[in-house]
Amino acid sequence: MANTPLKGWTVLVVDDEYDSRMVAEIMLEDAGARVVTAMNGREALDRLRQEKPRFILSDLSMPVMDGWQLMAELNDNRATAAIPVIALTAHAMVGDRERALAAGFRNHITKPLSADKFMTQLLAILEDQPEFSGSFE
């Protein structure tokens, strides 16, 4: 891929479902990112001890520790509170998006994902966020 806007970025993808994790991972890697994955919130927190991702893509419904709890944990910890988290979920009912934003997620992307739409959406979100702006080449 010639178009690698996320080159040099580390992104953490959290999802319990294998295929979902893979799809997101491949798409992000295709965009040039280095992807770190976790199967639930607990694992994600473990990963964050070593990794400093530019942002996190997290599912909401997961065993052990779901996306909501993860969000709360991240917010409680000063070291992680600044990392932007984007919900990536199959919850597409009215109100889901609002609930996610209220919980502290920077944005909300609904599944299913298709490669081109996902990147367009993601880049638009990143552009809108002040902490991302101008960061990618």
Partner: peptide
């Protein structure tokens, strides 16, 4: 209904995700 939506969208994600990646 919420569960239905969620449960249907998850497999769809795999189908559409892989297909679109493959296309690229």
């Amino acid at each position: 209904l919420a569960t239905m939506s969620h449960e249907l969208r998850t497999p769809m994600n795999a189908i559409m995700g892989y297909s679109s990646i493959a296309l690229q």
